[in-house]
Nucleic acid binder design. Structure first.
Lengths: 348, 348
DNA sequence: CTGTTAGCGCATTCAT
DNA sequence: ATGAATGCGCTAACAG
């Protein structure tokens, strides 16, 4: 039964049921109806019930625009990510959504595809809709700065732009990288390549730093030529990895600095018939589904991504509620998950 | 001049710059400023430039709430998915976001976790924010019905609730299943298990239908006991698969009806040391990253998920623009990607 | 071409 | 305990 469109109640001009309609139906004034429905102020129980009933019967839905305009929060929280197709950001978004939903807020998702311009456009949109706050993985300072300047509560996730006045939730990248590379060094590897997407932002830098720190601790010199930076949106990452491996045949292990890079490395290793870990060991930063599906499993630095989303959303909600205090910078701990992709260096 | 009651600069109150502030700064009326900025109506170029300059200088950001209240679209489009952590929905969301962003609309994402109640809550929120339209993978009729009844443009994706009055974009599940199972039958398999999450909605039903149709075409009888339904949020899917395989040792191939089920099947097969495809062949509906990373690759029915998101968003945008016409039901074609997980049935 | 007027739907004073 | 009045920021009529 599809109902055929026209429900001809006292419903005024255009199908949209407003507070006025409810009030009229209940025989009260709009203000009383407002109070009854919002639960503010005093309203006699009998009247309240009548209003509630009328609202239900008419299918009244409050109008956020009007409420927002009046000065309330829009109930919208912005999330700006760099690539929704990347499982990392999808997990992050899932954690954020879950937390927001529980607090009755809605998630507005924008993908900037790594572009500062698109991030700026997203920031403007969030401002424009009077978002209660914004969560973002920064791609430069501009967006964060613009938001903070206008008093918008901001929590940066995964990366930090360096802009002051916003909270952040990140994962200890340096520690994760140090453990991953230390794991390799402890197994005798001495020619460990680091393949990464970027070393321009703090996250990439920290991973590089961890890579170096691990070497330093082990008393092994690092060679600049063993670090390959693919770029943020490489045209042919597998080809780049291939060329790199051709030029560095002495490499016995690879540290892939994120899941996307890891994917390219794994595929190239397979393509050239290299066995993992017999011919080459592999550790990835950021544990993804496929790493536990393949044989052998890929040793990985697990990041609590979903939790990061949850924590970030919690911080934002708190901040949006008006609780001041100094900007907080929460750092979550990664965890090395050992699987089969790392073995002692082959004796040849 | 009129305004000497002002206490100085217009925006001093609360940091928020309004059209009034811009107009004052440019020495024009608010309506002129509005027209200049929105590009509607006639405004002298010199004035327009002055207004534009003032807006930029003050950092004016239009207020969507006010604009929406006035009767415009909110510029928000809702998307309701069942599980954002599932890569399938993440890809879908990515396609939607991309298309929306290009049209200057924002994506509001709600995850109903398969619950009708949460879907209903999401629907209410979309109504409340005067979304320009809503895209959803239905979990029942209620949400779609509520939206359609109120004249909200709706496009259903991946599944169809059967509610009339909305568009839909789906993938031909029956065809995909028929091809997948036909592929197995052609290789001599006669005991093919179908493991699925649900057979209650049209998508699951269509896949079951395709499974049966393939058997019928091959003249092979189907046995009810070979179909295992895990449920939408199974407590222990791997355990269930394990028990099933114990009870049906004659199975030589498995057709997993979606990527989540496929994951469980793959893991259980590995756990019990079964070789794929030597001991058991596997085909999955819905091609995911891990299926091309594992060795051998998993033969899969590739769904154009991202494109489905794009198409659905396009349809919605068109509909929201007020273009009427009969509800459209677009069906996208899946594609069987043959990899190494399917072999001729072992002769034993 | 530009300014004046009005009102979108709601929550909030302030009076009763 | 309830109703009347006000204004949030913007745009669409309508004058000029």
């Amino acid at each position: 039964m599809t109902g055929h469109g026209s429900n001809g109640h006292g419903n005024s001009k255009r199908g949209r049921v407003t507070l006025r309609d409810v009030a009229e139906a209940a025989g009260t004034s709009r203000s009383t109806a407002s109070r009854a429905l919002a639960g503010n102020g005093y309203v006699a129980d009998s009247i309240k019930a009548r209003i509630q009933e009328a609202a239900d019967r008419l299918g009244y839905v409050p109008d956020v625009s009007a409420r927002t305009l009046k000065g309330q929060s829009s109930g919208l929280v912005g999330l700006l990510v760099s690539d929704l197709r990347n499982q990392f950001y999808a997990q992050l978004a899932a954690g954020v959504e879950q937390t927001l939903a529980a607090a009755g807020q809605q998630l507005v998702l924008v993908d900037d595809h790594g572009s500062e311009d698109q991030a700026a456009a997203g920031a403007r949109a969030f401002l424009s809709m009077r978002a209660a706050g914004v969560l973002l993985a920064p791609v430069g300072k501009a967006a964060t700065q613009a938001l903070v300047d206008r008093g918008m509560p901001v929590v940066e996730v995964d990366r930090r732009s360096g802009v002051r006045g916003c909270d952040s939730v990140t994962i200890d990248s340096e520690l994760g990288a140090r453990e991953a590379v230390g794991h390799l060094l402890a197994r005798g590897h001495r020619r460990i390549a680091m393949i990464t997407d970027e070393t321009a932002w703090d996250t990439g830098q920290a991973r590089l730093k961890g890579y170096r720190a691990a070497h330093r601790e082990a008393g092994v010199p690092v060679s600049r030529r063993l670090v390959l930076t693919l770029g943020l949106r490489p045209a042919d990452p597998i080809g780049d990895v291939s060329a790199f491996l051709d030029q560095n045949p002495d490499v016995t292990a690879v540290f892939a600095a994120n899941n996307v890079v890891g994917e390219a490395v794994w595929q190239e290793l397979k393509r050239r018939g290299q066995r993992v870990p017999a011919d080459c060991s592999l550790v990835c930063f950021d544990d993804m589904t496929w790493m536990r599906m393949v044989e052998p499993g890929v040793t990985a630095v697990r990041q609590p991504v979903y939790d990061m989303g949850v924590r970030a959303a919690e911080m934002l909600l708190k901040r949006a509620t008006g609780i001041g205090g100094r900007p907080a910078a929460e750092v979550l701990q990664p965890e090395l998950v050992e699987r089969g992709s790392t073995l002692a260096v082959p004796q040849r």
